[in-house]
Design a protein around this nucleic acid. Structure first.
Lengths: 211, 211, 211, 211
DNA sequence: TATGAATGAGGCTTCATTCAT
DNA sequence: AATGAATGAAGCCTCATTCAT
């Protein structure tokens, strides 16, 4: 029996599959962000792509599997911004202030382009599964440690207060940046909101609110 | 032994009912905090009290009803701390610093005694129902406005920077306090964590991190 | 130990109990009529009397028990009307016509004072339990047989058609009377409706609609 | 053997779905008729078809939805019989008598093939939902009006009594026909029962029972 | 490889009945 | 005798997952 079936090119097939997989991931990211894990149905995600919902299971093991991958991609984006500067490159307060401005700006831009990240990373992910909880937790800790590297560098070079509680201050700074992100996301005039938050944030970190 | 008069039937009944109701509310608060709204089943709450799940419905209309009441009680506690000081009573930076210390301390204590509040109020409540969303939103706005009152008072009396962006700064301060609460809650040595966060928080707000 | 408890008078107690029982029966009759068997809850019936719903079970075995008794009382009232005349007392068509008018009038009055009877007896009762189904069925058959007695009497005395299918005609006559009842019940002006139905009904039975 | 071209996928799918839908509708019709709305569970209907109860919800929104459709189909069948003759086509009593015989015969056949219709339409449907109540009510009124059209025609042409109360008589005639249907349905020998009822019914309407 | 029909576990809610007070 | 708090069986509905086509 002669088979006239077009021979599959594995290369091409893999590319196609990878593309599809990526499309599903994007759609899931979107839907999870809007409705949360529990309220998102596999059919919801499939419908965004006009795809049969059975097809979903050809690319992902189950709902939890794709959520974990969605979380991974969100975490990666945050990590990239935080790691975008060299913690040891600064020698003066002004230089560090510049760094904070750039990191803050980058983070605000990220959260603006991905308004779902706060919800997704801060709370949505928690309680889905112990593994996921722990992973998120680890990223936040890491994130704090990276910021702390900047502060330790500043302390050692003398342009930050010698009695600065670097680990706590690092978390506080991160919190300010994330809160800024959350607020900018929800604001009507995002450009203005971003400018105001960045200014206030930097002023507070570097000079406090006193006159 | 002092004999207290046996209370009359209906009185006693009401007290019993109120007690039961309160027990269910507490149990629900606990379970909602740990598992979130969607993951919490009415049976879960009932099981905590070792009671049949049908009993639940003698005290609350439905799952949404009790969640709303749980939220109300959480919101009330937060509001009490925020409103515990007089925004116009301060005339110097030092006095205001004292106020922030007391409010921060009160909030940290509250979040310590009620570790669930951040999760409950920040994200868990959202998306359950439009009414609830709006209520939470209103409380956050109000909360920001109260803090802003302190800042406006400081500006008008000259002990805060004239160019301070009061509305943004108010939200930033609130965010710092809440982040402190979240972190203190999770720390092993809460007393130390509280002291460190309070110090860092006040230093940052009033002096920045520079040397 | 001297017991000062008032000695119960069994007589009086029984009377009280019987009164209560009768009150519950009336309330149940009302509620069953309005909402049907499935939609009526024991608590509904108790509430009508401002009585604790647990008390219900002191007077009736269960919900089915009281429904059966409600049905019995309804059936009894119908039977009384049907049996209110003497089937053999008539010797002329005119006399029988008078009987039908009186029975019809009595039934219309009954259904007017008890608008629930049609619903209760015709359909509500069916499907609750096989025993009940059968009982209702038996009553309808009996009811037809009683009416048939009148017709047989008429046939034997020659004032009704010799070829009259008495058993079918009896059921048809009963159906007309009941339909009249149902319609009178729902009409706005019951007196007029009763008069019109009675007239039409008798005319049809005794003369047809032709000119 | 004639080979029929294999239908295209979506076509076939639609047919299959429509078939399934229709099967469920039939099963529901049957179960609703036997047990009534409240006593019928979705699982009951599913079990008749040996299918999982979840499958039901792929074809109908909910239990009320399918009941409404069941009612619609029943109402449609009744309406067809009633509208099967031309009310104005008759000029003599004999002709009208022929019409009544045909309509009565058609209705008896319908109720024989669909023994559930009386229960379904007269009582079962009422009290489920206000919309349904109103729909049923409207059909009965309409049904009476159609029958009345025949009577008015007869009066105007002089072959029916001038003092005939057409609206009441119309309802009475309908009631007779329906009662006949109910009885024929339950009889052992349906052919005979049908003949006897039809004869008695027509005799009564057109001549009364007198000799 | 893609599809979507089918499934049933699981969650919410009601209510008849029991029983301690 | 009266009460009503407590219970859990049972019904409606959703949706993650499977599988035949």
């Amino acid at each position: 029996m002669t088979v006239t079936k077009k021979p599959s090119k594995p290369q091409e097939s893999n590319e196609r599959a990878e593309l599809r997989r990526s499309q599903i991931l994007d759609a899931a990211y979107k839907v999870f962000s809007e409705k949360g894990y529990r309220d998102t149905t596999v059919a919801d995600v499939a419908q965004v792509l006009g795809m049969g919902h059975g097809t979903f299971y050809r690319y992902f093991t189950n709902k939890h599997d794709i959520f974990e991958q969605v979380m991974n991609s969100a975490l990666l984006r945050v990590a990239k911004v935080i790691a975008s500067e060299d913690p040891k490159a600064t020698n003066t307060l002004a230089e560090y202030r510049g760094q904070v401005e750039r990191i803050g700006s980058g983070m605000l831009d990220l959260l603006d382009s991905d308004p779902a990240i706060p919800r997704l990373l801060f709370y949505e992910a928690m309680g889905i599964s112990p593994e996921l909880d722990e992973k998120i937790q680890r990223v936040w800790e890491l994130s704090g440690e990276v910021t702390e590297t900047y502060l330790i560098n500043g302390k050692s070079k003398g342009f930050l207060r010698a009695d600065l509680d670097t680990s706590v201050a690092a978390l506080a700074i991160n919190a300010l940046i994330f809160e800024g992100g959350r607020r900018v996301v929800r604001s009507a005039d995002k450009a203005t909101a971003k400018r105001r938050w960045l200014k206030t944030l930097v002023e507070m970190i570097f000079g406090g609110i006193g006159s």
